[in-house]
Amino acid sequence: MLETRMEQEQLQSTTPILRVKNLKKHYPITGLFGRAVGHLKAVDGVEFDLYEKKTMGLVGESGCGKSTTGRTILRLVEPTEGEAIYKGKDIFKLKGKDLQAIRKDIQMIFQDPHSSLNPKQRIGHAIVETMKIHRIGSHKERIERAKELLLKVGIREDQFDRYPHEFSGGQRQRIGIARALAANPKIVICDEPVSALDVSIQSQVINLLKDIQENFNLTYLFISHDLSVVRYMSDYIGVMYLGQLVEKAPTDELFSHPLHPYTQALLSAIPLPNPKRKRERIIIKGDIPSPINPPSGCVFHTRCPYSTKRCEQERPVMKKQTTDHFVACHLHD
């Protein structure tokens, strides 16, 4: 508990390296003759900060907009609205060279290791290419450094000239990590980096990510649907539901005192290793509503066991509960 307090104070005292404010991504749904009939609200008003050398976890069900959030930060998906302040500049307004500079500082690790490497490109060249794009070093230095990076992620030097299909999924993910490191990034967005891997390989890759964070002073945005992985990786966690951030807290605080009913339900779904210990499962009813016409008021009210009239009408805002613990729920006003 004391540790949590200290961590919280630490978080508050440092200034964020990246601030994301009111991020929205709405996809227009076109009907006959290209007229917009509605909007699919993939991300609807997400706000969070990333702190230097810390990991923020982003959890939620599939389709809740976690990946879209990560992608908009790199402008792989153009946001509809919002700001992302990095080094005093709004990433969403950058063009040309400035955007290029951002794409050097912020790198991404992808979910599927099978399609994230060009099958016709030798793996060493993939890493050299990243440096080439960002004009880092001479040709010789690049090769030298690529070999070094590969070694760091556990790929032998004599495998430099191999093609991706000669590697296993775990190895490919390591190569993807080395490629992200090649640009000397400050922030790495990990988009479900281990969910496509075997459980035995998952832990290796997760530990590798942790080591690398320390060695390279990285800040992570760690997107995953696996709560135990997120818990292990993250300093603080944001919980997403239907395109909105419903709760945000330091990891220990979130797991010991979940405030939002959705978070409580999520946490109760984690299987316990001890079969004799029983826990009350909170089972939420129904399916996740469609993001095309999300429920009015609080997006969770259709499935919430504590839902009131107010929840149906008024959208709750993020409110601070204790230091660094934020929740968007009328129960905690």
Binding site: L74, L76, L99, Q100, R103, K104, Q107, M108, F110, S116, E129, T130, I133, H134, G176, R179, A183
Partner: peptide, 8 residues
């Protein structure tokens, strides 16, 4: 997508 993310 990875290449785009790197600014290629």
């Amino acid at each position: 997508e990875a290449l785009k993310a790197q600014g290629a």
